[in-house]
Simulated scan of single mutants.
Amino acid sequence: MTVQKHSAEWYAVVTQWLFKLIDMLETYRASLAGNSEFLTSTLENVWQVPPLDSDVDGTARADDGLWGEVFLTGFETLTLTGKKQFWSDVDDEEQTELPNDLFMYLGACKVQRQRSFVDSTGRPGTTLQDVQVGDQVVIFPGAHVPFVIRLVTQKGGDFVHHMVGQLTFTV
Rank of each mutant, 00 (worst) to 15 (best):
L32Y: 03
D55R: 04
S36F: 08
L43K: 13
L102W: 08
Q136E: 15
A8T: 03
R113F: 13
I149H: 10
T126N: 10
Q129I: 02
L66A: 11
F103Q: 06
V171H: 11
L167K: 04
S7K: 00
N35M: 02
Q112A: 13
N45D: 13
F117S: 02
T153M: 01
D23F: 11
F38A: 14
D119R: 07
E93N: 00
L78V: 10
L18M: 13
E26F: 00
P50F: 02
E97F: 07
V164K: 11
R61W: 03
F71V: 12
S116M: 15
V138N: 15
K83H: 04
D158G: 12
T15I: 05
G74K: 10
L32K: 00
F75L: 12
F140I: 15
D119I: 11
G74H: 14
Q154T: 00
Y105M: 09
E97I: 05
Q114D: 10
G58K: 07
L98A: 01
M24I: 01
G125I: 08
G74L: 13
A62E: 02
D57G: 05
H161W: 05
D89I: 12
T96S: 12
E37W: 02
W87S: 00
Y28A: 09
D55L: 07
V56Q: 03
I22S: 06
V145G: 09
L39R: 00
R61C: 03
F147H: 12
L52H: 05
A143F: 15
E44H: 13
Q4V: 12
P99Y: 09
D130M: 14
M163K: 15
G125Y: 01
L128K: 03
D53R: 08
E93I: 13
L167D: 03
D130A: 10
S116K: 12
F75K: 08
D92G: 05
R150N: 08
D158C: 12
L18K: 07
P141R: 14
M1A: 14
V131T: 04
A108S: 06
E44Q: 12
L18I: 10
Q136A: 14
Q136P: 10
Q136D: 14
G165M: 04
D101W: 10
D135P: 13
V164W: 05
T59Y: 01
I139M: 14
T79F: 12
A108E: 00
A60S: 14
E44P: 11
K110V: 03
A62D: 01
A8W: 09
Q166C: 08
G68H: 04
A30S: 12
G142I: 13
Q132H: 08
D135Y: 05
S41H: 15
Q136I: 01
R61P: 12
F75H: 08
K20R: 10
H162T: 06
P124W: 04
F86C: 06
T73A: 15
G65D: 02
W87E: 04
G142T: 14
L98F: 03
P146K: 15
M163N: 13
F19C: 05
F140G: 11
T40I: 10
L78K: 15
D57N: 07
Y28R: 06
V164Q: 07
F147V: 08
K84Y: 04
T96L: 14
